[in-house]
Design a binder for these strands. Structure first.
Lengths: 248, 248
DNA sequence: CTGCGTGATGTTGTACACAACAATAAAATC
DNA sequence: GATTTTATTGTTGTGTACAACATCACGCAG
């Protein structure tokens, strides 16, 4: 079903997840599952069995259900009695509203309680930019998604407004899967991937430059523009592909 | 502890909550508990026993825990192992960031997918305005909070952007308790209540007028201004009161 | 009288058995 | 042979017993 090459074994599961209190454990399981969903390790429509997950993480169904309940409240899965817990399917049109909101929030990060980036943070941006440059050399969809995710978290840390951070994160995780899913269906998959990585690299360079001089408002403006354009490109290519293959 | 006069029996519990599927039942319990928290039926710091709630709603602890988990994720309660589920305490300073965000989102409701109000919706606004006028005549803190809540939901229905609605609601329920809590501690409780109701009535009249001519951008601007000013008034009176009684 | 340890009590977290429900396949009936 | 009915299997939702943990009271030594 998925054109994304995934490996048989999923990363970071029952290894060193035991330590810490019960809250930390649940938080870690939550983070792992959310990441898997967003990187399409779990494809939209896939059924997640609670007991399978319980076995993998070496707990009972109870804490797993706690995690799945949160993922359901956040719109990433949907549990159906007697059937299973299904990873929600998504399409670009349904996510348009989320994108519109993300565009606005991106600008707010530079306005509401911006934190002046210190040397360490700037270094983190530069490191990420370097990773992105190796990505341009050897394009890979999954690596692209991962760098994109790290980049988001780094940007999100530029505001001290906690609720804004939380909400931006929520919306990010609702939308980020759509790129991998849509792109993987395209005929011109490799070409689109290369083009998108190039554009992303340019955006990142621009933003890192703005971060270096400490102008977070500019960062907000750049991000706003890029999120908006990224959505439009995605929608266009998705619709073009849909009409080519015979609509719906 | 609370200066708000509450009655012995809490409304809307085990009566007609049985009907519907399991999801609807959980949703209803959630709504009831959330409302109780926001109207200070459960005061900040109060301990909610899972088994007590389970008895009241005539279910086991399991679905109650499902609801409490969501309330915890939304920041209204916090479960502590071996202690209890405690209604989160709040103070005006901690909520400043939430208010800043709400101010921005209020404006977005008029911008993102605004829905032209039909006759029925306008009528709902006018009905609410009438309720507010009776409130001016006979001030009552709890009724004020309830009308405020209804007003919020009505305003929130003016955008078709679902994620924006959900997030606005989330932030609203995080902040709305602070007014009742702060006001109830004030020396000049009655005077502040009367003044606040008068201001609220004026805001409502302005907004209803803007709704009637269908200008949702203006609605957004008015709300933005009022949320902002309301917060400032609250913070000032809270701090003035704190210094008067000896800081802390 | 104070400080510390220890047991009793109460509450949430976990695990597990079972009920409710959905889907599929098999079988019976027309 | 097609269709309806029924049985079987698989999954989530619920209830409940028990474990883990925190708190408080009580006793006891200093």
């Amino acid at each position: 079903m998925t054109a994304i090459p995934t490996l048989g074994r999923l990363p970071a599961a029952d290894g060193a997840i035991q330590s810490g209190g019960s809250r930390e454990r649940i938080e870690r399981i939550y983070a792992v599952l959310r990441k898997r969903i967003c990187l399409l390790d779990y494809a939209p429509g896939e059924r997640l069995r609670e007991e399978t997950l319980a076995d993998e993480f070496d707990v009972s169904r109870t804490p797993i259900r706690r995690v799945l309940a949160r993922l359901e409240d956040e719109g990433l899965v949907r549990s159906v009695h007697g059937v299973g817990t299904i990873v929600t399917d998504i399409d670009i049109d349904a996510l348009e509203q989320v994108y519109q909101l993300r565009v606005e929030l991106a600008e707010l990060i530079g306005k509401l309680s911006p934190v002046r980036p210190d040397a360490q943070k700037i270094a983190a941006f530069q490191t990420l930019l370097a990773r992105c440059e190796t990505l341009v050399a050897t394009p890979d969809a999954r690596k692209f998604a991962e760098i994109n995710m790290d980049f988001f978290h780094l940007l999100n840390s530029l505001t001290a407004n906690e609720p804004l951070r939380a909400i931006s994160e929520l919306l990010y995780y609702q939308t980020t899967r759509i790129w991998l899913k849509t792109a993987s269906r395209l005929e011109s998959y490799q070409a689109v991937l290369n083009a998108e990585i190039t554009i992303f690299h340019r955006e990142m360079a621009d933003i890192v430059a703005a971060v270096e001089i400490g102008d977070l408002e500019v960062v907000g403006h750049i991000r706003r523009a890029h999120i908006s354009m990224s959505f439009l490109r995605l929608r266009d290519s998705a619709h073009a592909d849909a009409t080519r293959t015979g609509d719906d």
